[in-house]
Amino acid sequence: MSSNSLFVSATEAEWTSPEPGVTRRVMTYLPEMMMVEVVFEKGAVGQLHSHPHVQSSYVAEGRFEVTIDEKTRVLERGDSFIVPSNLVHGVKALESGRLIDTFTPYRAEFVK
């Protein structure tokens, strides 16, 4: 997938596994923004981390324990959250689930 693709087929995106029980694929991106689908097995953890990108996430499926800046809430299908730059955050899948993450600017390290 190139950064100038306006339309991206799901079959074009390559899945990677950044952590045990977690797989992700870059759905589409431009330098200013990126959308990523992240699938979690029950109990899988997206470890606490931070980055300079603003992140907005939508819970497409499942239930997640979401921690942002030492505050934790349980979110389920249809809920969303936003992470300002450099705040420590992470998730735990309370059941199998899927997040749609959007980053601005794009995460260059996610692109080969």
Results as ranks from 00 to 15, higher is better:
Pro52Glu: 06
Pro20Glu: 03
Pro20Trp: 01
Glu70Cys: 05
His49Arg: 13
Ser56Val: 14
Ala10Trp: 01
Val22Gln: 02
Gly90Ser: 13
Tyr106Asp: 06
Gly21His: 00
Ser85Asp: 05
Gly78Phe: 08
Ala93Cys: 06
Thr11Leu: 11
Val59Lys: 05
Gly90Phe: 12
Val36Gln: 05
Thr11Lys: 13
Ala44Gly: 07
Met33Gln: 10
Ala44Arg: 03
Ser9Pro: 07
Phe81Cys: 02
Pro105Tyr: 10
Phe81Trp: 14
Arg107Met: 13
Val59Phe: 06
Pro20Ile: 00
Glu19Arg: 15
Gly90Gln: 12
Val88Lys: 15
Val111Ile: 15
Gly43Trp: 07
Arg25Cys: 02
Ser5Tyr: 12
Ser3Lys: 15
Val59Leu: 08
Gly90Asp: 09
Ala10Pro: 13
Val26Trp: 00
Val111Cys: 07
His89Met: 05
Arg73Phe: 10
Val83Asp: 01
Gly43Asp: 09
His49Thr: 11
His51Lys: 04
Ser50Arg: 13
Glu70Leu: 08
Glu37Val: 12
Arg63Met: 12
Leu75Lys: 08
Ala93His: 04
Gln47Leu: 06
Thr72Asp: 04
Glu76Cys: 00
Gly62Asp: 05
Glu12Phe: 02
Ser85Ile: 03
Val38Ala: 11
Val8Trp: 02
Val8Arg: 06
Thr11Asp: 14
Leu48His: 12
Gly90Tyr: 10
Leu30Glu: 11
Ala10Met: 04
Ser96Asn: 09
Thr102Gly: 08
Ser2Asn: 14
Lys92Leu: 11
Val36Cys: 08
Leu48Arg: 12
Glu19Ile: 01
Val74Met: 04
Lys92Ala: 08
Val54Thr: 14
Ile82Asn: 14
Ala44Leu: 06
Val59Cys: 06
His51Ala: 11
Val8Ala: 01
Pro18Thr: 00
Phe110Arg: 04
Pro20Gln: 03
His53Leu: 07
Gly21Pro: 02
Lys42Trp: 05
Leu30His: 08
Thr67Gln: 06
Trp15Phe: 12
Ser56Thr: 15
Arg77Ile: 02
Ser56Pro: 00
Val45Tyr: 02
Ala44Met: 03
Val91Gln: 13
Thr102Lys: 06
Glu37Ile: 11
Val39Ile: 13
Pro105Cys: 10
